[in-house]
Design a protein around this nucleic acid. Sequence first.
DNA 1: TGTGTCACG
DNA 2: ACGTACGTGACACAA
Length: 732
Amino acid sequence: MTDKVRLALKVRTEPDASERVAEAAKRKAAATETIDQAWTRILAMNNSAADQERLLAVRTAMAEGATGRRPSDAIGTGGTPKRFSKAEALRLWSELNERNRAATLRAMVENTPAHYVLVRDRKTLDFAKCVIAAADIIAVDCETFGSEEHPDGALDPWTGQMAGFSVSTRSHSFYIPLNHDEQTELTEEQIFSALRPALESVPNVMHNAPFDCKWFFVRYGINLIDTLRADTRIMAMAFDENRNHRLKDLCTDWLRSPGDNFDQLFGRTPFNKIPLDVALAYAAGDTEKTLKLYDWIRGWYDKRADLAEIERLVFHIEMPVCRTFIWSDIRGIRFDSAMAAKLDADFAREEADLQAKIYALLGEEINLNSPAQLSRKLYGELRLTDVDNGSTGVRALKRIKREHAVIQYILDYRGVGKLRQAFTSKLPKNVKADGKIHPWHNSWGAATGRFTCSNPNTQQIPAKRPEIRHLFMASDSDRILVSIDYSQIELRVLAHVANETVLIEAFEAGRDIHSTTAALISKGKYTYEDIERWKDTEGHECQKYRKQAKIVNFGIVYGMGAGKLADTLEITKAEAQAIIDEYFRGYPAIKRYMDEQHAKVMRDGFVTDLAGRKRRLHEEIKAKEKWRIFSAQRMGGNFPIQAGAGTILKKAIVDLADVLPLYDTHILLQVHDELVMDCPRDITPQGLDHIRTTMENAIKLRCPVRCDVEINPERWMRKVDADKWFTEEDEQ
DNA sequence: TGTGTCACG
DNA sequence: ACGTACGTGACACAA
């Protein structure tokens, strides 16, 4: 028997054996486990919040005798008892829910409060108009649905439809149907001509405002953005960034009055199929709760003086930024679908070529996108060195590149496959009828206060391979894309919060910060000037030092230790430790800062950034697993830096609101330390300077803040020299 | 639905 | 004495 065959047998037989053992254990457990023990086991599993809630409901229902195991579920094949599983419990929940649904809906309709009003005729419309116009604040929410053609339309104002919307004042809650199967006496025209003035003038509050604002503007041209006072999701984020922020759950936990759950009530029924009396009871309740939640949070601001900073953050930074990016997303960014198709075809051909080469080398057609299959092939059959527990990630593969010719092909295949799967073949699907991509910026998506972005995520368009970014274009031939990014903003914030004079002086002198650190970790072997002189010389030690310094500069911000640094730089742990020691010796205030932050997290349970944004880690520091506590300390060190950098950019966005209109310029995208804007082609150097200095002066630090301006006529990241651009423009 | 991988800063 | 890289979203696979 050859080794290869023996190994193949081993690989195949082992899981069988372990499966048999597991199966026997299960049978034994089923024979001995009581239902209470089963519940303890299931509830201790890593369940999603929704599942946990459902499981608890089933347990209660079981105890009350409202449901129970079916004999067919309790007995397996051969008459052996089957143990009670999570899947079975969730099946029981579905059954219970289905049984309860009709009754719940009936009860909801019967108990509809008297101040809920269904707007279905002239009289109720006039009443709604008067009540809304007289209100000091309203809550608004819309109900949407998709179609056969656009199944995701319920989430997409560019392809879906609005079933209706609800508006709450402090006295009444209205539901105004627009497109229900159940007809009313009113047309969309009648409804909006009556309500538009009131809707657009009274300050409003919403939960997840970008969603509803976009629907109203894109579908009906109703502008609720300029009068948007608050988004209760953002207010909730400012109160507790760790929890989920669904309206229903916030109401349950904070107002102690549970909200209705759409899925639970309606399942997959599109909202336009919902009877109007049910729609009223559900939708009017949502806006009423939103307004109550808003008042509840405002109440805390009034009660607690220490929340003044949070209140300021919400109303003077977050809400203006949120409003700006609702407009940005509505405006959208032009996308070159034809070029994308061409690029996609090129990538597909390249991918097929590589795949053929790989199959020839492997002698078998495995699925290369399956980590499991690839891992078995490389480490099992081919017996290549498994450097990272069977991982087939780039890092592991790069290290065994010399062992087999196929590795480089696999890496290339991965690279081109990623570009095609994630970008050239997917981005065109996000293009709407106007030829533009309308991303969803979530201005407080991350716990650190950073933006997130989705559908598509324009923050993760490749930067190293610029051809994908080139697909994003200026809106018109007389306009250009201008991208302005903060230079080394996180390291500047670090210099500021740590008050590290060595770093501050380097920034003041305009020195390259990686070269500064490179000189430092070379232990005096090279000066800053040496590094700068030799950094681009292939193979020179200065180049190595600068490369290491760059990784250390970023790594320290993340709380990187010697182990990870050694891993990344492919040096010994002792060498890595020596570099870190040298770094902290040269930047003593950074060491002090990190120690202070770690102590602060452990003492207070939270840390703050320069605008009072908080990261609460109370639960983490109480964890019994050491790694979670270490992780919390790293977060404590990293948060003020990452959040601070994010807050500077947000403050800049607020300040730019008064500047950009002067130059007919609009923000299109945010990529953490960068803003991509759409400008007139004839914008002046003075105009760009004004925009740049506004960003640089957004928040004063102990060191200067600098931005770089890139001029991209037509395509993102296809930049031209600014001086040349302006002199040539003048000649025309 | 969770996991692995990989794109970004 | 020991030991640790932060924050995201999207895709394909495997169950």
